[in-house]
Simulated assay, not measured.
Amino acid sequence: MLAVTCTSQSMTDPLTGLTVGERPDPIVPDGWTTVRLRTAALNHHDVWSLRGVGLPADRLPMVLGCDGAGVDADGNEVLVHAVVSSPGWAGDETLDPRRSLLSEVHDGTLAEVVAVPTRNLVPKPEGLSWEHAACLPTAWLTAYRMLFTNADVQPGSTVLVQGAAGGVATALVQLGSAAGLRVWVTSRDAARGEQALALGADQAFTSGARLPERVDAVMETVGAATWSHSVNSLRPGGTIVISGATSGDAPTKAELTKIFFKQLRVIGSTMGTRDELERLSRFVVDAGIEPLVDSVLPLADAREGFEAMVAGRVSGKVVFSI
């Protein structure tokens, strides 16, 4: 089968380890099944794997990819949930200390066929295109859990999204706007701020700007560079939901005094559950949301999409057709 594989790793030149070519069809353990993929999507996780972060070298070669949608062995149209829990785990799979994502222990979705636990299949709703289906299982699921499971916000609440350009950030804007939230964004790039406004954000500010009023919740994926601004932007009793730290995880000031004095909540959020993915896919269809797609490329041209992501030229999701 055709697949996109990490065959070696380099922190400074990650694309040297990217191989697009033939791989053996997957082995299917008991309790697992196969999905013949129609679309898959690219994530920063895939680039980090090529850099050697989160993917030990002794597991190479590894087929990359967490996002995918296709047809299962019984002919059903499905989305692939990428969080693989350990055998016997029950309950929220994101809390399983032995969980993994596809492409970390088991081959991922940037291939013609992927093997997944049968319980990880989510029916693809009628009306959800293959391109949009492939956008949902990672960045969009992360955004959904941040907003609707962990942020404790209601329609009419004001939410600040730090950094307007990334896949999670654009999903937060589109989901929050569709759910009746007042969404504000920050960005160092005025053009990215304008794009967020076009996607449904109510206001866009330069990074670190003083806001007109304090917000109910902050969606934090940037980390050290925006941490103090996030804390200072919250009303007393407000919530920071953090799912990443692209600028580093060691801010100059921890802001502990402000956190306890203002009784702020700081909640970590990682990916989401299979059930949340099912609810997300229905919400996207019912609300008429069209996830922002940067480009659609044949899987054979996957290197082009990786090059764009490494160069920082991506807005929305890069989708591969298979």
Rank of each mutant, 00 (worst) to 15 (best):
T246H: 00
G208P: 11
I259E: 05
S207V: 07
L211D: 05
T221C: 04
S247C: 06
T221K: 00
T221V: 07
I259G: 05
T206L: 06
L256A: 14
A254F: 12
I259H: 12
T246L: 03
P251M: 03
A254Y: 13
I242P: 01
T252R: 14
S228Y: 00
K253I: 08
W227A: 00
A209E: 14
G223Y: 07
A224W: 03
A217T: 00
A225Q: 13
R214P: 02
G244I: 01
L256W: 10
I242S: 15
W227G: 12
T252S: 13
A217N: 00
I259V: 15
E220H: 03
V231K: 10
G238S: 05
F205V: 13
T246E: 03
L256E: 06
P251Y: 07
G248T: 06
D216F: 01
R235Q: 15
V218F: 02
R210K: 14
V231E: 08
S247V: 01
G223D: 03
S230I: 03
T206K: 02
G208W: 13
A209R: 10
H229Q: 09
P212M: 08
L234Y: 09
L234C: 09
R235P: 02
A217V: 06
R235A: 13
I242V: 15
F205K: 09
S230N: 02
D249M: 11
R235S: 12
S228D: 01
I240L: 15
S233P: 02
T226E: 08
P212N: 07
H229D: 11
K253C: 04
A225N: 12
L256C: 08
V222P: 09
L256S: 13
H229N: 12
P236Q: 05
R214N: 06
V231C: 05
D216E: 03
A217F: 04
S233H: 08
A217E: 03
G208A: 13
N232C: 07
G237T: 07
V222K: 09
T221H: 04
R210C: 01
A250I: 05
L211C: 10
W227R: 12
V231Y: 05
G244Q: 02
A225S: 14
A250H: 12
V231A: 07
A250L: 10
G248K: 08
V218I: 07
E220Q: 05
A209K: 10
